[in-house]
Simulated scan of single mutants.
Amino acid sequence: MDDSETLVRRATEAFNSGKPDEAQRLCEQGLARLPGDPVLHHLLAAVLFSRNAVAPAHAHIDVSLAKRPANAAARLLAARIARSEGNFDVALAHIDSAIAISPQREFFVEKARTLDQAGLRAQARESWRAILNVIPGHQEAAARLGRLAWEDGDPATAASLLAQAAAPGAPASVWFDLAVARQDLRDHAGAASAYRKAFELRPDHAEAALNLGIAMQEGGDVDAAMRAFAQAYRLRPQLFGSIAMALTSASHGRLWLDEDGLRRALAS
Score class of each variant (00 low, 15 high):
56 P>L: 15
139 Q>S: 10
7 L>S: 04
15 F>H: 11
82 A>L: 06
101 I>N: 12
88 F>L: 10
113 R>M: 10
177 D>F: 14
134 V>Y: 06
90 V>D: 11
37 D>M: 05
259 E>C: 04
29 Q>N: 14
131 I>F: 05
2 D>N: 05
9 R>E: 05
94 H>C: 03
51 R>V: 01
186 R>M: 02
267 A>C: 12
145 L>H: 05
90 V>S: 13
100 A>T: 12
202 R>S: 14
13 E>N: 09
44 L>P: 00
85 E>P: 04
1 M>D: 14
56 P>E: 09
52 N>Y: 12
192 A>H: 03
163 A>L: 05
66 A>N: 14
134 V>F: 07
126 E>Q: 09
73 A>F: 03
132 L>Q: 13
50 S>N: 15
174 V>T: 15
154 D>R: 09
26 L>C: 06
48 L>M: 15
24 Q>T: 03
147 R>Q: 08
220 G>Q: 10
29 Q>D: 08
234 R>E: 00
147 R>S: 06
175 W>C: 05
214 I>R: 11
155 P>D: 09
98 A>P: 05
45 A>D: 11
30 G>S: 06
210 L>C: 00
50 S>K: 15
19 K>W: 06
240 F>K: 00
15 F>T: 02
71 N>R: 07
165 A>N: 05
156 A>Q: 13
47 V>P: 00
224 A>N: 07
249 S>F: 04
183 Q>G: 15
251 S>G: 02
135 I>Q: 10
118 A>N: 03
69 P>E: 14
148 L>A: 13
171 P>H: 09
3 D>S: 03
208 A>K: 02
2 D>F: 08
